[in-house]
């Protein structure tokens, strides 16, 4: 789903060949989600079948290099992409959340020390937050904007996790040991 729309988004900038799509995607997303070329080609095949992209002329990107198949966005591909940009992203139904599942199961179990689980998790999450913050501190706000924005997103997710842990601790206190 995301890969499909991501490829459309890159092709909307300019026609590209398969490997170029992979590089452009990774560069725009700060290298956070590596794509393998095989995945790019199978997705392109599906997009072509659905009429969202079409093949363009074969080109070589530099003198003497082998010619490669390029791809273009179709009119329908462009409107699908626009639809994707406009559609808000909602986590509904929620993605599976291992920490939440683990804590809820621990609360339901009799023999498990939930407080200890929360404490271990909090220390690890805080360290992760400290690590991400160190990266943020070093990131160049102009030259590394995608990286910085991504760090902000990751930082806020861990922050939410830590706040949830705090709420769990507060709600579980006073409960039977």
């Amino acid at each position: 789903m995301t890969v499909k729309n991501s490829l459309l988004a890159i092709l909307a900038q300019e026609p590209a060949h398969g490997y170029g799509l992979k590089s452009a995607f990774e560069e725009s997303t700060a290298g956070a989600w590596p794509l393998n070329v095989g995945q790019v080609y199978t997705t392109l095949a599906r997009l072509e079948r659905d009429g969202l992209v079409e093949t363009g002329p074969s080109r070589s990107s530099s003198e003497g290099e082998r010619e490669r198949q390029t791809w273009n966005l179709t009119v329908e591909g462009r409107s699908t992409l626009e639809g994707w940009y406009r559609k808000p992203v909602l986590d509904d139904p929620p993605a599976r959340d291992e920490l939440a599942i683990k804590v809820l199961l621990a609360v339901a179990a009799d023999q498990v020390d939930v407080a200890e689980i929360l404490q271990i998790q909090r220390a690890a999450s805080m360290q992760r937050l400290q690590e991400l913050t160190q990266h943020k501190r070093r990131a160049d706000p102009e030259a590394e904007l995608p990286w910085l924005l991504l760090l902000d997103a990751l930082i806020l997710k861990v922050k939410a996790e830590l706040e949830w842990i705090e709420l769990c601790e507060a709600r579980l206190r006073g409960r039977r040991p």
Binding site: A32, A123, Q127, Q130
Partner: peptide, 17 residues
């Protein structure tokens, strides 16, 4: 409880690439 920041510098990469 107490947590220390991980060592700065050449620490483990945050992301795959």
């Amino acid at each position: 409880d107490e947590t220390c920041a991980p060592e700065t510098g050449s620490g483990s990469p945050v992301l795959p690439l």
